[in-house]
Design a protein around this nucleic acid. Structure first.
Length: 484
RNA sequence: GGCGGCAUACCCAAGUGGCUAAGGGGACGGUCUGCAAAACCGUUAUGCGGGAGUUCGAAUCUCCCUGCCGCCUCCA
């Protein structure tokens, strides 16, 4: 397996720190608003990375933090007249609603800054003791001159960064590029006691402190958006390596941006779409499919038409899954023909191709194409065979389940089996009634069809279609599904 | 100003030296159907922004040009 490492700008063979185990840390959101679709990309992508590593048999420890105290939260809280910590607690809960909808599995640990003050203060102390940081008037700054490797991730030297860059003038800093580890509290702000007076952590120190606590030094994978390379991750490296004297991270992974009209989407530009709003229009799993349809390091333009196109693609997979499901419930045979054996061989190839795609720096777009080839293989097989071979069916269905275990494009049941029920109110009590009514209409329509009363039959079909219910007539009778 | 990225069909998109340039959407034709839908079969880039070069051979490497974007400041 190869991973593109931002640190070396090359694909490198993946060798974890400890055989069979992978430690990964992904920068989570600052909880001052609902997440936007740009935040959703790393979420979904790194969730997929984790799933694939698990598929490969690794024991993965996945940590994703919440930045639940910072300037933006304080400002937002002031605007809303709400307590900052209450506000961030609320948005943490909202975050999980969106992430759950996108089929993102919970991290093993979701540390919060406010719950790790001791660890953060301890790390700042170490940095001061080692001469890598200095305290001024209740602030503490990291001294970048103490860390010669500063700039190695973003490939910039401090001199280059100063030339032409607008750096705020802060007379308390020794060097304009020095950054805050601890910020003295201003009146009315939430604060925590520290050896330097009441205050709160700077933005970068939390990730160093919390990753060190849960994953230790030199952990395997650190992920986040490309815009975090500088300064956030550069600063994390400086802090962590200055403190431990060991390499901070083995593989740095950064996802590309989501754009709107080819322009970067961000909270600061104000051209962002909240996941919450996007999900009013699209199924969350369609959004997930869309996010995985492009390689993670490429930009991805968000556009309703493109998401709809992705939705129709996913529908194709769903139809195939439905056909396979029906075949599993239907007649099967146990003897094998040459055709069956060819099919099995082809399926084995598809698994290898899928793994090859994911092994190559998590090429989800290519992996998806093998899902489609699987669908075509399955469909054409089922088209030809009225009583398909049990072993072939099992293999098809197992392969679909495995691919889905990695990509998470469909909900799964307790045994990891794919659950297609995305019908209106399928899991609500009212859904029972809806389903019964539809079944009743289908019976009426079948009676009309038997009498060749096509007008009535078509009226029922068209009417239901208008309500988002698609009817398909098959040799085994009609079936229906909701159009997502 | 400094640093970096991208440009593949109508749309999305994989492919970084070598069989006929994946896959999806769309469109068109066929099979199936009462008609549809779904599914299946077929068609849809002699060409990969433009130009020059390296090579037996390039979408893939080099140079130039054009266009778009990002980072250097909070940002996934």
């Amino acid at each position: 397996m190869e991973i593109y490492n931002t640190l070396t700008r090359k694909k490198e063979k993946f060798i974890p720190r400890e055989p069979g185990k992978v430690s990964m840390y992904v920068c989570g959101p600052t909880t001052y608003n609902y997440i936007h679709i740009g935040n959703a990309r790393p979420l979904v992508f790194f969730d997929t990375v984790r799933r694939y590593l698990q598929y490969k048999g690794y024991q993965v420890t996945y940590v994703q933090n919440f930045t639940d105290i910072d300037d933006k939260i304080i400002n937002r809280a002031a605007e809303e007249g709400e307590d900052p910590l209450e506000l961030s607690r609320r948005y943490v809960a909202e975050y999980f609603r969106d992430a759950d909808a996108l089929n993102v599995r919970r991290a093993d640990i979701h540390p919060k800054v406010t719950e790790h003050m001791e660890d953060i203060i301890g790390l700042v102390k170490v940095l001061i003791d080692k001469g890598a940081a200095y305290a001024v008037d209740g602030d503490v700054y990291f001294d970048i001159s103490s860390f010669p490797a500063y700039g190695k991730l973003s490939r910039r030297s401090p001199d280059e960064m100063l030339a032409g860059a607008r750096v705020e003038v802060n007379p308390r800093k020794k060097n304009p590029l020095d950054f805050a580890l601890w910020k003295a509290a201003r009146p009315g702000e939430p604060s925590w006691p520290s050896p330097w007076g009441p205050g709160r952590p700077g933005w970068h120190i939390e990730c160093s402190a919390m990753s060190l606590k849960y994953l230790g030094a030199n952990f395997d994978i650190h992920g986040g958006g490309m815009d975090l390379i500088f300064p956030h991750h550069e600063n994390e490296i400086a802090q962590s390596e200055a403190a431990t004297g060991q390499p901070f991270v083995r593989y740095w992974m950064h996802n590309g941006f989501i754009t709107v009209n080819q322009e970067k989407m961000s909270k600061s530009l104000g051209n962002f779409f909240l996941v919450r709003d996007v999900l009013k229009k699209f199924s969350p799993l369609v959004v997930r499919f869309f996010l995985l349809s492009t390689h993670y390091r490429s930009p991805l333009d968000f556009d309703d038409e493109k998401v709809e196109s992705a939705g129709r693609g996913r529908e194709r997979l769903k139809n195939s899954l439905q056909l396979v499901g029906e075949a599993l419930r239907g007649q099967q045979r146990t003897e094998m023909t040459d055709r069956d054996r060819d099919c099995l061989a082809r399926l084995e190839t598809l698994r290898r191709q899928f793994e090859g795609a994911m092994d190559d720096d998590f090429n989800t777009a290519l992996a998806l194409s093998y899902c489609f080839e699987l669908a075509r293989e399955a469909n054409s097989y089922l088209q030809e065979e009225t009583a398909p071979a049990r072993d072939v069916l099992a293999k098809i269905s197992g392969l679909f389940a495995d691919f889905n275990e990695v990509l998470g494009l469909f909900k799964t049941g307790a045994q990891g089996e794919i659950v297609l029920a995305e019908r209106p109110g399928a899991d609500a009590e009212a859904g029972e009634l809806v389903q019964s009514l539809i079944e009743l209409l289908l019976q009426v329509r079948q009676e009309a069809r038997a009498k060749k009363d096509w007008t009535t039959a078509d009226r029922i079909r068209d009417g239901l279609k208008g309500l988002g219910i698609v009817i398909e007539d098959t040799p085994q009778g009609p079936r229906w599904k909701s159009r997502g």
